[in-house]
Amino acid sequence: MKTMDLVRDVLDKQVVDRDETKMGRVDGLLLEIRPGQPPRIEAIDMGFVVLARRIHPRLEAWLERLRRRFGVSSIRKTARYRVPWSAVKDVNPFCVQLDVAALDTPAFDWERWLRDHVVAHVPGVDS
């Protein structure tokens, strides 16, 4: 895809990792404004704080404070995860594919935390 509509084809798209594991959505895009050159996409923003910003800047500030105060250390980063555009492998009508492994990224912090601390303790799930 050479020409695309950033709103239609990139923003809010499903993000998948190398193995096509769903790891979140393009919650925001960061543009770099360059003098004399067209703006380029610097990075993809993912996470709750980014979504909060889209609703209202005050909600973002509030969530950010809450996160700093109560965040469990292992899931602290997940509220905001920024991936440089250079990590994007493919943009297709179905998803935006990144050249990373979801499990190693902060986007999967919650998933990992729930798996290790909740799901693993449910009787009947062999760990």
Binding site: K2, T3, D5, V7, R8, P39, R40, I41, W85
Partner: peptide
């Protein structure tokens, strides 16, 4: 609505589309 193009490893903005027609198009 905003159109962009991929240039090598980069993705750069070409045009901004304004007005309700841009929304309907999108």
């Amino acid at each position: 609505s905003v159109t962009a193009e991929r240039e090598g490893g980069d993705c750069v903005i070409r045009e901004y589309l304004l007005g309700p027609a841009a929304l309907l198009r999108r």
